[in-house]
């Protein structure tokens, strides 16, 4: 396998030109956008503690609002799996170590086992189910199949989600970037060889599709 040169550092949020930068001189310049502001935060009177018993929680999952009564201690992963029957995300370490539970929260990859469901209120939760709606495989999924980047498959949904998130930030990654970028997921069967090939290939097909104007994900 050859190492391809990447695109340099991860896309900066600011990426200001020198002129922009000078314009900002003197005043405090925020280099980031706040996430999740586009959606209404829960209207709860602030400071009011909720629980420890069940409280109503509204989750927005794959674009759909779902109402649940949950104890504050219920994790997003348990809410998805046990309450909503959305089981693509898996529970393995339950301690933010293996990535099997990866979902997107406002488009950022997170370990759903270590997010409280109640904390996901007011944010967009995207699970793997979203990316194969109508039976169509996402290019990353297809590449996983083609490169046999799966054996038992238990880590696979987490890896697919991590790969989708990674490619969003690194549309044209080098092999080394792929390897390090997916360092937060674990597989026991040993499918990493296929995974790195699959992600490199998916990057190519997705870039081609983008250039062709079609939308993925």
């Amino acid at each position: 396998m050859k190492t391809k040169r990447g695109q340099g550092p991860e896309k900066g949020t600011g990426n200001v030109s020198r002129r922009d930068f000078l314009r900002g001189a003197g005043v405090a310049v925020s280099g980031t956008l706040l996430v999740g502001e586009s959606m209404a935060e829960p209207a709860e009177a602030s400071g009011q503690a909720r629980g420890p018993g069940e409280v109503p929680v509204t989750l927005r999952i794959n674009g759909e609002a779902r109402q649940l009564d949950l104890e504050p201690r219920v994790t997003l992963l348990d809410a998805l799996r046990d309450r909503l029957g959305i089981t693509g995300a898996k529970k393995v370490c339950d301690r933010a170590t293996c990535g099997a539970c990866t979902v997107l929260l406002d488009d950022e990859p997170v370990y759903a086992c270590t997010v409280l469901a109640i904390e996901a209120e007011g944010h967009n939760v995207t699970t793997i189910e979203h990316f194969s709606k109508g039976g169509q495989l996402h290019p990353v999924m297809k590449a996983f199949v083609d490169h046999d980047a799966q054996q038992c498959g238990f880590c696979t949904p987490g890896f697919v989600m991590a790969s989708i998130a990674f490619l969003k930030n690194h549309p044209n990654p080098s092999l080394e970037e792929v390897e390090k970028g997916l360092g937060g997921n674990l597989c026991r069967c040993g499918t990493y060889h296929g995974i790195r090939l699959a992600v490199l290939e998916a990057a190519k097909t997705m870039t081609a599709q983008d250039e062709g104007g079609s939308i993925h994900g």
Binding site: G88, E129, D148
Partner: peptide, 19 residues
């Protein structure tokens, strides 16, 4: 040959005991 249950696994549709 690509494994025939590959799409079920990579799309998260495959149901395991845990699911």
């Amino acid at each position: 040959i690509s494994r025939i249950d590959g799409p079920a696994k990579s799309s998260g549709r495959a149901k395991y005991t845990y699911d």
